[in-house]
């Protein structure tokens, strides 16, 4: 409906149940996007794209179900809403989550299996320069905080980046993008730009 009202793009949402959503909003605003925080189904209905931030996936899952956001978001993902998830957001986009807490669910959409806290506790959190062929030079400086890893990549998903040891930490599938790390904590916004370009392309085609 927003598409009929104007040929422009609706606002871009950042899921704001918990986590570093303000940092994502700041990045998207720097592109000139109209950014809104999303905690309710009525807010989700307005957006042309959504970022799921870093945070605690078990908490984001619980609150999204409690406040009726999970089902409409799953439907929106199925209908092609562009979504970018970082860290906990990647977990929420995975079809299958390992080492979840009892009863934990995800929104799904990405044909992958993700393991929570795959590197261990905070002492193992790290930063590293990553080669991401799709983004070209320079390398992406990636910050991993108690980060998840993509352990299996299904046929529909493709790998955007892996660590030197082969562990997959960035994936893409249609309008869905997920990274184990946090570009919003650095000054390199190429992943956000890639997501935002998808938002623009999708909005103008619909």
């Amino acid at each position: 409906m927003a598409g009929n009202a104007s040929r422009g793009v609706g606002p871009v949402g950042v899921l704001a149940l918990q986590g570093d959503f303000r940092e994502h909003a700041r990045v998207l605003s720097s592109f000139g996007a109209d950014v809104i925080t999303v905690r309710r189904p009525s807010e989700l209905a307005l957006v042309s794209g959504l970022v799921i931030p870093g945070g605690e996936s078990s908490v984001i899952d619980k609150l999204s179900r409690m406040f009726g956001l999970a089902e409409p978001l799953k439907a929106a993902i199925a209908a092609g809403l562009p979504v970018y998830g970082t860290c906990a957001g990647l977990i929420m986009l995975a079809d299958t989550v390992r080492d979840a807490i009892a009863g934990q669910q995800s929104f799904g959409g990405l044909d992958i299996v993700v393991r929570r806290n795959a590197f261990g506790n905070q002492r193992e959190s790290f930063e590293v320069d990553l080669d991401v062929p799709e983004l070209g030079d320079p390398a992406v400086h990636a910050v991993f905080i108690r980060a998840p890893v993509v352990e299996e990549v299904g046929e529909r998903a493709s790998i955007l980046a892996a660590l030197d040891d082969g562990r997959v930490i960035a994936v893409e599938q249609g309008n869905l993008l997920g990274t184990s790390f946090h570009p919003e904590m650095t000054d390199d916004y190429r992943f956000h730009r890639r997501f935002y370009n998808r938002v623009l392309a999708t909005a103008f085609h619909s």
């Binding site: 704001a16 149940l17 918990q18 986590g19 570093d20 959503f21 303000r22 940092e23 870093g54 945070g55 605690e56 908490v59 860290c87 906990a88 905070q122 959190s125 790290f126 930063e127 910050v143 991993f144 905080i145 108690r146 946090h182 904590m185």
Partner: peptide
């Protein structure tokens, strides 16, 4: 520093 402060960033709103 970034990694140490970063975990707290992820706890925000919690």
């Amino acid at each position: 520093n970034r990694v140490k402060r970063g975990l707290a960033e992820m706890l925000k709103g919690g």
